[in-house]
């Protein structure tokens, strides 16, 4: 992970960015630049605003009544909360994988084809190709290629989560957001997802929220530590875990937290 330490191009950047649930400020004037093509981990204790920040990047918080923002959040240099931004287009460019696998109650094929069908007129052959490519990308192809027309609700938790990843990849996003993608999975399935994240690194900018510090250390280039809505520290993963600059960070990663 040498390149992480070099100055890389920024893909998404928060500038004095806050998120409120009605009056309650859940993310407080955060400045954070997520570098292009790398894996950025967001860690912190439960309720510190990790999910809120992540969901703000593709404006998923718009769905929550009373949630509003302040400051700037740039994606590719453009303010995500600008007036002319179309959330449908934005979310196509920024894919998301959730904590709990949420496959649609449709066939495996239809799950993956869902996004491409919305956004473009692909021919049947192109669509087949896209589905295969995405499932291969999510390392699920070998397991499901013979039962693409089976209902996706029959998949195991780990498979379902990879299907959700394939589904997100199928619209060819530029960035992937993952909100604790392995917290509902067993260790084996978790390892597979982690492997995948490492494989996808470089092709996509990835932001992954995790409460598991080992996981952050294993998969990420950069790590951001949130505490009570504040960004306490943002540094290269190796640095943050070996020589944290802030006392709070140190307390957290050494498990002396109170």
């Amino acid at each position: 992970m040498e390149d992480a330490k070099q100055k890389t191009k920024t893909h998404a950047e928060a500038k004095g960015f806050s998120v409120f649930y009605r009056q309650c400020e859940a993310v407080k004037r955060v400045d954070l630049a997520i570098p292009f093509g790398l894996v950025t981990a967001i860690i912190g204790p439960s309720g510190c605003g990790k999910s809120t920040f992540l969901r703000a990047i593709n404006r998923m918080n718009d769905l929550i009544p009373g949630c509003h923002t302040d400051g700037e959040l740039l994606f590719d240099g453009q303010n995500v909360y600008g007036g002319d931004v179309d959330t449908a287009v934005l979310r196509r460019r920024i894919g998301m994988v959730f904590q709990k696998p949420n496959p649609f109650p449709k066939s495996i094929y239809d799950n993956v084809a869902y996004g491409p069908r919305l956004h473009g007129n692909l021919s049947k052959a192109e669509l087949d190709e896209r589905v295969e490519e995405s499932l291969v990308g999510a390392a699920l192809w070998e397991e499901v290629k013979d039962r693409l027309n089976k209902n996706a609700l029959g998949l195991s938790g780990g498979q379902a989560q990879r299907l959700c990843l394939a589904r997100a990849l199928a619209v060819r996003p530029e960035m992937l957001l993952m909100d604790e993608p392995t917290s509902a999975l067993d260790p084996k399935a978790t390892a597979r997802i982690e492997e995948l994240i490492i494989q996808l690194r470089g092709r996509y900018t990835i932001a992954v929220v995790t409460h598991n510090m080992q996981q952050a250390a294993r998969v990420s280039d950069m790590t951001a530590f949130f505490y009570e809505g504040n960004l306490v520290e943002f540094a290269a993963t190796d640095d943050l875990f070996t020589k944290p600059r802030e006392k709070q960070t140190e307390n957290y990663i050494t498990g002396r937290f109170g």
């Binding site: 593709n58 998923m60 769905l63 959330t87 449908a88 287009v89 934005l90 979310r91 196509r92 894919g95 998301m96 959730f98 709990k100 949420n102 496959p103 649609f104 109650p105 449709k106 869902y114 996004g115 919305l118 956004h119 959700c164 589904r167 997100a168 619209v171």
Partner: peptide, 25 residues
């Protein structure tokens, strides 16, 4: 909510989410 968010996160509009995912479910 999970199902709905899954669809919105893929860039679907509300109508598309409702017709393609929520109603079938």
């Amino acid at each position: 909510r999970e199902l709905r968010e899954g669809s919105y996160a893929l860039g679907a509009t509300r109508a598309e989410t409702l017709v393609n995912v929520v109603i079938p479910a």
